[in-house]
Simulated assay, not measured.
Amino acid sequence: MSEEQAEQLMQQMQMLETYFSDLSQREGTFYSILREATAAIESIQSLGKIPESETLVPIGMGTFIPTKISSNSKIILNIGAGVAVEKDFPSAINYLEARIKEIEVALQDTAAKKQDAASRLEQGKAQMNQMMQAMQQPKSG
């Protein structure tokens, strides 16, 4: 393997490592969104069971205002692009469950891409090891 090929392989490995890192970060974000959506569903379900409850509303910098929630079975749901809609509890739960399914699909896709990148990284490392061994062996001639 020539020096030029070795350099190309190193660049490919660096790009793959960056790609793998990006995929891992994306996967972490998806898991975070998944936990948030699940928690939202659980909160909506508990609000439906308790007609009135007390809670703390964050106003910034670790400061909270105690308030009462009077459940009238309506919730405001951010659907993206700065748009929020009012939905009843079952509709809000259905919307969030649909989002969870989308996130699960994205997670599966990301996991498959991560697996592919990991196997390509392993192949690259094996090639690098072979190249290093070939360079260390004395040439007979």
Rank of each mutant, 00 (worst) to 15 (best):
G124N: 12
L96H: 06
P138R: 12
A84S: 14
Q115L: 02
A106I: 02
S2L: 01
P90K: 15
T63Q: 09
A106E: 14
P58W: 02
T63E: 04
P138L: 08
P51F: 10
I100E: 03
M1Q: 09
Q45M: 07
Q25R: 11
T110I: 08
Y95N: 09
I59R: 07
D22V: 02
T110V: 12
S32D: 15
S91C: 02
A39H: 13
Q14F: 04
V85F: 03
T38D: 14
S21D: 08
I103C: 01
N72Y: 07
E27A: 13
K87C: 06
Q136F: 04
S73Y: 05
E54I: 05
E104W: 00
M135H: 14
K114W: 01
M15W: 03
G28V: 04
L107V: 13
L16E: 03
A126I: 06
I65C: 02
D88I: 04
Q45Y: 03
N129L: 03
M135L: 12
S73L: 04
A134Q: 15
K139G: 05
I33P: 00
I65H: 08
K87Y: 05
I76F: 05
Q11N: 08
A81L: 05
K74Q: 13
P58K: 03
A6L: 06
E86V: 14
L56F: 11
P58H: 07
K101T: 15
S73F: 06
G82M: 05
I65E: 12
E122T: 10
S2I: 04
L34F: 10
L56S: 11
T55I: 06
E122L: 10
K139R: 12
K74E: 15
K139T: 08
I93S: 03
E97G: 03
A92F: 01
V57R: 14
E52M: 10
A112G: 06
S70I: 11
K113D: 13
Y31A: 09
Q137G: 11
S2A: 07
S53M: 09
R99W: 11
M10A: 15
E104K: 15
P51D: 12
I33W: 11
Q130T: 12
D109L: 02
Q130R: 15
K74W: 12
K139F: 01
N78K: 10
Q123G: 09
I75V: 15
S32V: 06
Q108G: 06
I100K: 14
M13N: 07
E102D: 13
R26P: 00
L34H: 15
V105A: 14
N94T: 15
A92E: 00
I93H: 01
L96A: 09
E54D: 11
E104R: 10
